[in-house]
Design a protein around this nucleic acid. Structure first.
Length: 110
DNA sequence: CCCGTGACTTCCG
DNA sequence: ACGGAAGCCACGG
């Protein structure tokens, strides 16, 4: 059987898929929702694993400051920003504008 | 089993 | 207010 740790990854993937279009969330928010607020890094690690799963909009997941911390992991150098803007999200200098307004909190919604 | 790494977050100076 | 350092958990070698 799978260990709980691996389930953590699966949860991250599930939550990421539940992110509405035009909305973004933070690694910490997902970690808190999963019950491990201190595992924010693990969420990012999980996103890295989700990189092979196109069903997971990793570009909608940013750090607590709304900064596209993971954009460097996407193809090219501005793909993540292009995806966000394509969904109606305004991005400036690798930073999401109106982050507080488009912020989607899984723990609050779910 | 131990060590290193990482798409984060928070605290201290 | 800004910058640097530590803490944290999980995965891979």
């Amino acid at each position: 059987m799978e260990s709980k740790s691996q389930d953590f990854f699966q949860k991250v993937f599930t939550v990421a898929r539940q992110i509405p279009i035009g909305r973004v969330t933070s690694y910490g928010a997902i970690a808190v929702y999963l019950g491990s607020a201190k595992s924010a890094r693990i969420v990012g690690y999980a996103m890295n694993a989700s990189h092979g799963d196109l069903t997971i909009p990793a570009h909608r997941v940013v750090n607590r400051k709304g900064l596209l911390s993971g954009k460097h992991h996407f193809e090219g150098s501005n793909l993540m920003q292009q995806l966000l803007e394509s969904e109606g999200i305004v991005v400036k200098d690798n930073q999401v504008q109106d982050f507080d307004k488009i912020f989607w909190d899984p723990c609050k919604v779910l």
